[in-house]
Amino acid sequence: MGHTRDPIVRGRGAQSSARSERFDLPQREVDDDWREAMRMLDGDPPKLRTTVTEERPKSILTFNQSPDIGFDRSINAYRGCEHGCVYCFARPTHAFHDLSPGLDFETQLFAKPDAARLLRETLARPKYIPAPIAMGTNTDPYQPIEARYRITRQVLEVCLEARHPVMITTKSDRVLHDLDVLKELAACGLVAVSISVTTLDPKLSGKLEPRAASPGKRLAALAKLVEAGVPAHCSVAPVIPAITDCFMEEILAEAAKAGVTSAGWIMLRLPHEVAPLFREWLDVHYPDRASKVMGIVQSVRGGKDNDSRFFHRMRPSGVWAELFRTRFRIACKRAGIAKQRFNLDCSQFRPPSTNGQLSLW
C-alpha cells in the first residue's frame, strides 16, 4: 500500500491516506523531497476538511445471505463516516472507488438523499416480504452530516408509515433527535436501538473514534432511550485486547445503571486495509504494546490479522477469546443484563403509498 504519511494526523482516526492495491487501480505516492520542498515554501498542509458528495443510487435496500449476522437486509444512508473510528471494518469499501480507506474514508463522504423515496418504492412492491431492516451496519446513520441531511429520520418515517421493523446501530447520541419517531415505532414493537460503547476513557475514545460521541454521552443516550420505552442494547464493541478490554466490566455495570437489559460484545476485526491502518495507529499511539495487541488479535484469528471465513469471522477462537467470553458472561450476570434479542413485529406491515397520499388500509 503506497501512501503519504505525516508524523501525526490529529483529530482523525487514520494516520495516512493509504490506498489499496486490491483492485489494481493506479497508485499515487508523493515524493518525500517534493513534499518537504512544498512545506518549506507554503508551510504545513491545510487542515483536513470534510466534503460530502450526493449520490443517486437506483436502490437503497441491500440484501445479504451471510450466516454470521442476524439480519438479511440493510440500509446505509451514507458512505464513509466522519466518526473516524480507526478500527471500522467498513473502511475497505472506499477502496473500490479509488479512495483511501484511511483519511479519505472519514473526510470524503457520500450522502444518499433519495433513500426514503427508494425505500418507499421497494416496500410498495407487491411481492415484498417484510423483515427487520438494519441501519448502521456499514457506516453510522447518525454521523455528524445527518444533522444536515436528515436521511435517517426520513427512512424511519417511512418505516413508521409502513409499520416496518427497523434496527439501528450507532455511536452517537444524535439518535435522540429522532426520539419522537422512535417512541412511536417502539409502541408498535417495530424498533430496537444498539449503541456501541468501546471504552469509558474519553481520551482513549478521542484517539480511537475521534468524532464520535463521548462514552458518557452514549451511556446517557441509552438511559434516555430506556426511559422513553425504546428497546436499547449496549454493544461492547469492538473489544481491543490490551487497549479497551479492561473496560468491559465497567461498561456493563454503567449500562445496567442506565436501565439497559440487553448487551453483547464483538471482538476487533481487521479486514483488508483496516489491518495496516490499525497497525499504523498502534505505532503512533501505543508503540510500547503494539506487538502484544497484534499477538492477541492473531491468536484469536487463527494466526492471521483477520479470519474472513463464514462461521469464523464473528466468532474468535482460542484461549483469549474464551477469556473474553467468560468475563462478559460473568459481568452481565453481576449487572443483571441478559444476552437477549429483541423480537420485532413484522405482522403489522402495510405497503406505503407511492403517490403522496396515505392508504386507507
Rank of each mutant, 00 (worst) to 15 (best):
H3F: 11
H3W: 07
P7A: 08
V9I: 14
G11V: 13
Q15M: 12
D24K: 12
Q27R: 13
E29F: 05
E29Y: 04
D33K: 10
W34D: 14
R35C: 05
E36Q: 14
A37Y: 10
M40W: 08
T50H: 03
E54W: 02
R56I: 07
R56Q: 14
P57Y: 02
S59T: 15
L61D: 02
D72H: 09
G80V: 07
E82D: 13
T93N: 11
H94D: 11
L99S: 06
G102W: 05
L103Q: 05
E106Q: 11
E106W: 10
E106C: 12
Q108I: 14
A115G: 08
A116F: 02
E121F: 03
P126D: 03
I133V: 15
T137N: 07
T139C: 11
R148K: 15
L156I: 07
E157S: 06
E161Y: 02
E161C: 04
H164G: 01
K171S: 07
R174E: 12
H177P: 01
L179Y: 02
A187N: 08
L190G: 01
V191F: 01
G206C: 02
P210F: 01
L219T: 00
A223T: 00
E227I: 02
P231V: 04
S235L: 13
V239P: 03
A242F: 10
E249N: 14
S262C: 10
A263C: 04
L268A: 03
L268Q: 01
E273N: 04
L277S: 02
D288N: 06
Q298V: 07
S299A: 12
K304H: 15
D305N: 15
W320C: 06
F328Y: 13
L344I: 12
F349Q: 06
R350A: 13
N355T: 13
S359F: 00
W361K: 13
